[in-house]
Nucleic acid binder design. Structure first.
Length: 249
DNA sequence: ATGGGCACCTGGCTGC
DNA sequence: TGCAGCCAGGTGCCCA
């Protein structure tokens, strides 16, 4: 890496003052992921980044003029710039010189949804004694990571479970169906590039096509694809929840 | 320990 | 056409 340029330090957490000096001149050794955090490993530490709701990373040519909301650049030896763009500034950038798994943002994260560890039995065990609504429960990163607002509604639809059900009211069979639904929904969505609701595009400029596969999300008032009942919407924890009152109990 | 609510931002869409 | 109001793909933190 040749250089680091920060134009806007006010992301979700301010970028540390010594950040550029710490990272400048180092060599990228590996790129990994944990939950929705991207980990870029260098010789003396790891960069932890999150894209928030509106962030994106692009490789641009060296002389590309920065646009509004292009908050930082990492200039690499190959002559390209890794550029972070984030209109809402919900993204973040951290540096750690110890094991990133121990970083406060990562230390308490639960299982990866697509891992073998996350299965029906794991979810069933986790739901015991939890009175919170199951939709909020599966969006809790201390239960399972990676389940955002769209996929929470979709997974519950596929598992035929009402989003309002108390987590502890799930049977072992339902927990198993829900764990499978979470894996299926995320796996399928990833395969076709995610869900483009408005303007999201991937690094090549292509939208995600999972929107066409949504059963309930943003379909309020439209006919359920299974039973034709009008899809309902309400708010849980300040987030919109969509569901079919006929298919989900 | 758990659950609920708030916070951080800008931009795009809706409806008057 | 202009503009106010509302809503949004996330998630950590504070408080009861």
């Amino acid at each position: 890496m040749l250089d680091v340029i920060v134009r806007e330090r006010r992301l979700r957490w301010p970028i540390a003052a010594h950040f550029e000096a710490t990272v400048r001149g180092q060599t990228v050794r590996a790129v990994e992921r944990r939950a929705k955090y991207i980990l870029i490993r260098f010789d003396t530490g790891t960069l932890i980044l999150h894209l928030g709701m509106s962030g994106s990373l692009r490789l641009v040519k060296l002389d590309t003029t920065p646009k509004a909301h292009d908050h930082w650049d990492i200039r690499v030896d190959s002559g390209w710039i890794l550029r972070f763009h984030d209109p809402r500034r919900f993204g973040s950038l951290h540096w750690t010189d110890t094991d990133p798994a121990l970083h406060p943002l990562l230390a308490k994260l639960a299982a990866e949804p697509l891992s073998r560890e996350f299965d029906g039995e794991y979810l069933y065990r986790a739901t015991r004694k939890r009175s919170v609504a199951v939709k909020q429960f599966i969006m809790n990163s201390q239960v399972v990571v990676g389940v955002g607002n769209i996929y929470a509604s979709e997974a519950l639809f596929r598992a035929h479970i009402s989003p309002r059900r108390a987590a502890r009211r799930l049977s072992r069979k339902e927990a198993t169906a829900l764990a499978k639904a979470i894996k299926d929904v995320l796996g399928e969505a990833i395969k076709i590039g995610g869900t483009t609701l408005r303007d999201y595009v991937n690094a090549d400029g292509a939208p995600g096509y999972f929107r066409q596969k949504l059963f309930v999300y943003e379909r309020k008032g439209e006919a359920c694809r299974v039973c034709k009942t009008a899809v309902k919407q309400f708010v849980q924890g300040q987030r919109s929840t969509y569901w079919c009152s006929t298919c989900q109990v």
